[in-house]
């Protein structure tokens, strides 16, 4: 689970910005890498999800081999087929959902 602590612990109105893995079967190393990449990309292109997704995808392709797919968005549904141990579905910034998987 994410190490970064939550923001202020002020009762109801707590805004969580830390990355939070919802579902992942990646290896520890890969998951941390994917998480860091997503955080970097989403912070860099906070206004443009497309560019953020592209950045994550390209970096992941470079590091772990091609055919990664990345979806960054605030609300969407998906039903995907992925190669085992390559999926990472996480939330970031409290409102963004990032789904990274590999399928060639």
């Amino acid at each position: 689970m994410a190490e970064e602590g939550a923001g202020g612990a002020g009762g109801e109105k707590v805004i969580h910005t830390y990355p939070l893995i919802r579902h992942s079967d990646m290896s520890e190393e890969m998951r941390i890498e994917a998480m860091e990449l997503s955080v970097t990309a989403c912070e860099k292109y906070s206004q443009n999800n497309e560019l953020a997704a592209r950045m994550v995808k390209e970096s992941m392709d470079k590091k772990f081999g091609p055919a990664f797919h990345v979806v960054v968005g605030e609300s969407y549904g998906f039903e995907i087929t992925y190669e085992c141990t390559t999926i990472c579905y996480m939330y970031f910034g409290g409102n963004q959902a990032i789904c990274i998987w590999k399928c060639s």
Partner: peptide, 8 residues
């Protein structure tokens, strides 16, 4: 391979 689906 496996399937996964969710709604964000």
């Amino acid at each position: 391979r496996a399937n996964y689906g969710s709604t964000a």
